[in-house]
């Protein structure tokens, strides 16, 4: 198992990191989530950031220094289980193509598929939220069918509309807020991925399962 070769190290004076070597596997990520949940109630922990195969743990350095926490982190990683979290399945309605997804023809061309076939395969797959980052509520999803992988745009757009569904390399995701971005835009959703006044503030949580559901423009976009 990966336990033996995981790296444990300090990041600056107030954080520690557990990093498991590649490949990226759901079972490893389940251990990361377990550890994140377990540590978020630890007396000296002020935050946790799950990444891809890794977890960054923020400490209050006045209470506990990273070097003094590393042995405990290592011991906890040994105990970490691969139990799947109590995850939700979230269905996200998407208007594919047209103005909502201007790069759909390019993705189809790259995949040597028809645009309808791209939609069918993108909406036919099960996705897993590995972690959130980049923007509040932005989910790094695993599960994009390999044939849909498309290189990022050579020239990133200066402004991508909120809710845009894109493909960048072998990843797919939804932009929660207007941002510059280099992914190929294949559709758009009106679901709100981040609402600072809601509890929890993000629609998606690490461990959630996601399905994209194609809808007609009139039923979704105003």
């Amino acid at each position: 198992m990966t336990t033996a070769s995981a790296r444990f190290y300090a990041l600056g004076e107030r954080a520690v990191v557990i990093e498991s070597p590649p490949p990226v596997e759901e079972t490893c990520q389940q251990k990361i989530w377990w550890l994140a949940r377990r540590l978020s109630s630890h007396w000296a922990v002020r935050g946790v950031i799950p990444g891809m195969n890794n977890l960054t743990v923020l400490l209050d350095p006045a209470l506990l220094l990273p070097t003094n926490f590393l042995p405990e982190l290592e011991a906890l990683w040994q105990q970490a289980t691969e139990e799947p979290p109590h995850s939700h399945e979230v269905r996200i309605p998407v208007v594919y193509g047209g103005d909502a997804g201007p790069d759909l023809p390019d993705v189809a061309h790259h995949a040597k598929l028809s645009p309808d076939e791209v939609i069918a395969r993108h909406a036919g797959a099960d996705y897993l939220v590995y972690f959130l980052g980049f923007q509040p509520g932005f989910a790094y999803l695993g599960g994009l069918p390999e044939e849909l992988a498309t290189p990022r745009l050579a020239e990133p757009r200066l402004s991508v509309p909120a809710g845009s569904v894109g493909i960048g390399g072998c990843q797919t995701g939804i932009y929660p807020a207007v941002t510059p971005g280099g992914w190929n835009l294949i559709g758009r959703s009106t679901v709100r991925l981040f609402d600072p006044s809601a509890s929890p503030p993000t629609l998606l949580q690490p461990g959630d399962r996601v399905r994209f559901v194609p809808v007609e423009a009139t039923t979704c976009l105003k």
């Binding site: 978020s40 002020r46 935050g47 946790v48 950031i49 799950p50 972690f131 932005f138 993000t202």
Partner: peptide, 10 residues
Amino acid sequence: RQGSRHLGIG
């Protein structure tokens, strides 16, 4: 802000 970083909140 502290404590919401796992949701991408900076």
